[in-house]
Amino acid sequence: MNASINVKSLLPLWEQFRAATGITSIRDEAHYARMTEILEALLDETQGDENHPAMGLVDIVGDLIEDYEAEHHPLPETTGAHALKFLMAQHGLKQSDLPEIGSQGVVSEILAGKRELNIRQVRALSKRFGVSAATFV
């Protein structure tokens, strides 16, 4: 594929998008908070639909948040399953207490690391526990 990219026409569009959204590498805590709000709004918009046109933007914003957190809020190496186990323990929940995730079998596979959380499940857990969706990503 030898399609050339017209950078001169792309730059004004990028500048307009960046100015309107602030979506760029996160520079400070206020920007971090804003990017987290944007991620939550995008997750609300996509409603867990992996084919939604905004899913690419969810990935980009999620990656920017992850990069900032890795540098400024390092946590011990963890997974969405570890976060879920912790929150379940904190709230005294059993696997069967999470129907919004799926059957007890699905929850068991997620906790065992045999299955990844999908966007719909991440959104549901974020809402249920009142934490950022990034907690499970």
Rank of each mutant, 00 (worst) to 15 (best):
23 I>A: 09
110 I>H: 00
69 E>L: 10
77 E>M: 09
46 T>R: 07
104 Q>I: 10
131 V>T: 04
58 V>Q: 04
135 T>K: 10
22 G>Y: 10
102 G>R: 02
123 R>S: 15
100 E>K: 01
112 A>H: 09
37 E>G: 15
102 G>S: 05
9 S>M: 11
80 G>H: 04
56 G>W: 12
50 E>N: 03
74 P>C: 07
43 L>A: 02
13 L>R: 13
22 G>V: 08
33 A>T: 00
65 I>E: 05
123 R>Q: 13
60 I>W: 04
25 S>A: 10
24 T>M: 10
21 T>D: 13
98 L>R: 01
91 H>C: 12
1 M>C: 08
94 K>T: 03
6 N>G: 01
41 A>N: 14
88 M>I: 09
101 I>Q: 05
26 I>K: 03
118 N>F: 03
17 F>Q: 06
124 A>K: 05
112 A>G: 04
60 I>N: 07
96 S>H: 05
126 S>N: 03
127 K>Y: 12
28 D>F: 12
136 F>P: 00
45 E>P: 01
46 T>L: 11
43 L>V: 08
2 N>W: 00
34 R>E: 10
44 D>P: 02
71 E>A: 13
117 L>V: 08
15 E>C: 14
64 L>H: 06
52 H>E: 06
9 S>I: 12
36 T>D: 15
86 F>R: 15
27 R>D: 11
12 P>D: 07
53 P>E: 12
125 L>F: 05
24 T>Y: 07
4 S>T: 08
76 P>M: 13
31 H>S: 08
20 A>F: 14
81 A>W: 06
80 G>Y: 05
30 A>K: 14
90 Q>W: 10
98 L>M: 07
40 E>G: 05
133 A>L: 04
96 S>E: 13
45 E>A: 15
11 L>T: 12
88 M>F: 08
120 R>Q: 14
134 A>T: 06
27 R>V: 13
53 P>K: 05
98 L>P: 04
17 F>H: 09
87 L>A: 09
48 G>K: 03
15 E>A: 15
117 L>H: 09
10 L>C: 08
131 V>K: 03
98 L>N: 04
93 L>P: 07
136 F>L: 04
11 L>Y: 07
107 V>H: 02
107 V>G: 00
60 I>D: 11
114 K>I: 02
37 E>H: 11
67 D>P: 00
85 K>N: 14
84 L>C: 11
8 K>A: 09
110 I>T: 01
122 V>K: 12
8 K>T: 06
37 E>A: 12
71 E>L: 11
132 S>M: 01
16 Q>G: 09
115 R>S: 01
38 I>Y: 10
3 A>M: 07
14 W>F: 15
83 A>V: 06
14 W>M: 14
105 G>S: 12
54 A>I: 05
122 V>Y: 03
41 A>W: 06
93 L>H: 08
30 A>R: 11
35 M>E: 11
64 L>R: 05
23 I>F: 11
115 R>K: 13
25 S>H: 03
25 S>K: 02
89 A>Q: 14
8 K>Q: 06
17 F>L: 13
64 L>A: 08
